[in-house]
Each structure stands twice: as structure tokens, then as C-alpha cells.
Design a protein around this nucleic acid. Structure first.
Lengths: 107, 107
DNA sequence: ATATAATATCGTAATATTGCAATATGTAAA
DNA sequence: TTTACATATTGCAATATTACGATATTATAT
């Protein structure tokens, strides 16, 4: 089929996979790292910095915003994107919970 | 284009994204959780347990093996898959490093 | 109001992923 | 060696993702 059969998994499993998936693209990793390295909030220097087209960057930002890792505020004619630190920490905790509760029982 | 332009990112960014990506599918999350919940090492009860076709499960297992999170041993006519705990911990550390070094400077 | 700049959205092409049936391969028992 | 079972691989169809040009939208300045 090719479509992921989300209905056969739990909501938690789907949510967890969704976080991993959004972080699973190097452009989005790079965007998050770049934003975090600026003293001020950065808008679309990202286009120059990362080297993808404006439309592409905008799309990646949207995905990061959708899962709540970024928030954006209007700042003059540009947008000020920044990491939503509460959400950030919450996601980190979720991922760690997954790692910690999944242990080896092996061979 | 549709192809991810990996060459414009650092090796670390690509590696990190790769880990996230492999974990970014609910079937693979479910597989890891199921294996970790068994006392003994589990082979392909996964097919019954998860409800995807044998070929599909085998494919997911392969991806998890490729990034080293699972290791498999022959056990009679079946395979004993289990979590590679050293790798598991190493990946968890990598992800936490990413989360911890990416902080908010915002708005 | 108009022009300019920044960002978002739309449409589309290229590529990747998911899933399965069919088949191949490997392993153990008869 | 034949049979039976478990797993892996192949080939393919359906769907999803990535990327970008073109265009729309939004906001400020003139």
C-alpha cells in the first residue's frame, strides 16, 4: 500500500513516531540548531544560511511549528521564529521516557 | 526535486536526522517496545502481534538493525532479535546532547 | 494608494517510503 | 533428501516527502 497504517498503533506510539519523524530531516535539525545559536531571534537568514529555497524553508518551519517546537511572532515585516522551550523540554522528556522504558532482555 | 540534499548539511546533522528518521515510524516504535517487553528474545510473533505482513516486519527490522539498535541471532529456525543496549544508550545520549545544546534565546 | 520586502501557499516534478504477494533462502526435523 | 517452517529479498503499486518556481498574502515605508 505505501500508506502508514496509523490505525493499528496506539496514539502514544503514533505521537512518539511523529516527533521523531519531524526531527528526522537534516534541514530541520539545522534550522533548530541555527535558531538556537543566534542571540536574537532569527527569521529568514535561514534561507541564506542553509541554502534551500525560501519556499522550502518555510515548509520546514511550518512542520516544526505544527508539532509545537517553534513559535513565530510577527516582527515588522518579518517573522521571528524561536524555540518553544516548554514544548522542547516536554518532547525531550517524552523521548527519554521511551528510551528508559525500553530495555534489553536479550540473548 | 524531492531528494533530500544531504550534501548541504554536516555529517553530524545527517546522522542525527537519520536516527530520528528510523525511529519516526509507529511500527518501528511498536517493534522496539514489544521486544523490550518480552522476557525472552522475540522473533516473529511480531507479525501476529503488530498485524503487518511478514515482509513488512522484516523490512522494518532490517532498518532497525542497520542503525544498530537491534541485533539478531539465529535461534533454531527462527531469529532472535534483541535491543543492542550499548548502541541504544549511545543513541539516547546523542539525542539528549542535541536537545541540551539547542536552547531558546527568544522573543 | 503604491511600492517594496518578507513570508506563506499552491502546483508540480522528482524521489522516497510503506506495504504486500510472490519467491528465494536458510534451518531443522523426518 | 525431502518436508516444513521461519525469515529475507524482490518487484511492484499506492502514497508521502522534498524541493522549487510562481504567485498570493501581509506589513511597512514612501
Amino acid at each position: 500500500m505505501g500508506i502508514t497504517k496509523t490505525q493499528m498503533f496506539t496514539e502514544k506510539q503514533n505521537d512518539l513516531a511523529q516527533f521523531f519523524k519531524v526531527l528526522g530531516h537534516p534541514a530541520r535539525v539545522a534550522i533548530l540548531q541555527y535558531i538556537s545559536n543566534q542571540n536574537a531571534c532569527i527569521c529568514n537568514d535561514l534561507v541564506e544560511e542553509i541554502g534551500l529555497a525560501q519556499a522550502t524553508i518555510s515548509q520546514h518551519l511550518k512542520e516544526l511549528k505544527t508539532i509545537g517546537l517553534l513559535k513565530g511572532e510577527v516582527e515588522g515585516k518579518s517573522m521571528c521564529y524561536c524555540i518553544n522551550i516548554e514544548r522542547w523540554n516536554a518532547v525531550q522528556n517524552q523521548l527519554n521516557l521511551f528510551f528508559n522504558t525500553t530495555k534489553s532482555n536479550c540473548c
